[in-house]
Amino acid sequence: MDFMLDINIPTPKETINYREPILLTGSCFTEHIGNSLQELKFDVLQNPHGILFDPASVASSLVSYVQNKQYTADDLFYLNEVWQSWQHHGRFSHVDQQTSLQLINASQQRAHEFLKTAKWLVITLGSSFSYRLVENSLPVANCHRAPGQWFRKHLMSIEEINTVLDNSLYQVLKFNPSLRVIFTVSPVRHIRDGVIDNNRSKARLIEVVHHLVNKFDRLYYFPAYELVIDVLRDYRFYDIDMVHPNYPATSFVLEHFMKHFTDAESQQVAAEVQKIVIARKHKAFHPATEAHRKFLQSHHDKAKELQAKYSFLKLQEEIDYFGR
């Protein structure tokens, strides 16, 4: 007896290999995928602007990486005792203006260089709602706890979303012609918009993404949204806030991502790396025992063997840990 719907996930004609750099950008669900890939030792760079939710912010950030935009003091504002950028996540905010600019511009430079040689770009869209400053209609990526009356909430139309993403993709693919793009829509519910408006918002993202995927031959769609909403389809797969998918749900999504969007060699290597990663997290009750010493030696040898066999892996941290 089947207790959940099956889902057909077409495997792209080109799939991710460990040797291929991956840039990830977008909503908080981007970091679920990115952190997992990073833990498995894929070459990833995620969210150089920090978490971004709406298409306008994602598109603007991608263009800024192509152009290697360098921000100045005029791009910052002072609020809540720190300097901040409307285009960046709070992790770039700082009490010192120059430090904030250095953090932002260092990330810009790294993203520009990474995008030159990246083989994959993963874009996770979270919401069609965009917040605009009342004084100049500037779209903001983060409200930084500023007073609500500073902003106008705008539900982007399908045409608006398509325009900003299409234009940014044109520039990105011109900058790096070998790049391939994977779109996902975040299964995180933006419940502050209300259930009805959240569904309207997600529907617009899905419509535009499929239009773009059908337009460009190097664009693909990974159904993270459908895997959680339609396949798992149960609140037990959400965190206590009933908004964010929990660990079993994100693990389920990652399993399908690895199965359909990475090649056979990478899946085999990832399984071996996962064993090393799990062992690294092991907490010994009696670290002075001979049994624990043998455990460390065994995994030190396995990590060195895996590193020697696959030179593209970066396992030195694990080798040093087990060899201490």
Rank of each mutant, 00 (worst) to 15 (best):
A118I: 01
G148H: 12
R145D: 11
S36V: 07
S186F: 05
Y225I: 06
S178P: 03
R132K: 13
K302G: 02
Y65W: 15
D193W: 06
I278H: 12
A203R: 12
E31H: 07
L205F: 04
K119W: 04
F129N: 05
R192F: 11
T25L: 10
H260V: 09
L23Q: 05
V273K: 00
L205A: 04
F285Y: 14
F222Q: 04
F92M: 04
D263N: 15
F29D: 01
Y225C: 02
V195R: 13
A308P: 04
N17K: 14
L165K: 00
S128T: 05
F42H: 07
N142K: 05
L37E: 03
S85W: 01
V243F: 04
N8A: 13
R180W: 03
R110P: 05
L133A: 08
K259M: 10
S85I: 04
V122S: 00
H286D: 13
S128N: 06
P248G: 10
N162S: 13
A111L: 07
Y220M: 07
K275N: 10
N167L: 12
D74N: 13
R233P: 02
L313D: 02
Q307P: 07
A118W: 01
D234K: 09
G50S: 07
V164Q: 01
E317N: 13
L179G: 01
Y235P: 05
H292W: 14
H144K: 08
V188A: 01
L5M: 13
G126R: 01
F261Q: 02
T11D: 11
Q102F: 10
H89D: 14
T25N: 05
E81T: 14
L103Y: 11
I182Y: 02
Q307R: 06
V209Y: 00
Q84F: 03
A56W: 03
V44D: 00
Q67K: 14
S64R: 11
Q274C: 09
N214Q: 15
M258N: 06
L138R: 14
T99E: 15
L138G: 04
S61E: 04
A279I: 06
S178T: 13
F129C: 06
D217G: 11
D320R: 09
E317R: 15
F151S: 05
S27V: 06
T163F: 11
Q297H: 15
D193Y: 07
V122I: 14
T289R: 11
D241E: 09
P245R: 03
N246I: 06
Q316F: 10
N8G: 08
K41N: 14
F252D: 08
D74T: 15
F151M: 09
S130K: 06
F261G: 00
V273T: 04
L62Q: 05
L232N: 03
Y238H: 11
P139D: 09
I158N: 06
E135W: 09
Q307V: 07
K13I: 13
V243S: 10
V213F: 07
H286N: 15
Y220G: 02
E39N: 13
H244P: 02
H256Y: 14
Q297G: 11
S130E: 08
Q46H: 12
R280K: 15
Q67S: 15
M4N: 11
E81D: 15
S137G: 08
Y225D: 01
F261R: 02
L179N: 01
G323P: 02
V140T: 05
V140K: 02
K119T: 09
L40M: 13
V253K: 03
R152D: 13
F312N: 13
E81L: 12
V231L: 07
R19T: 14
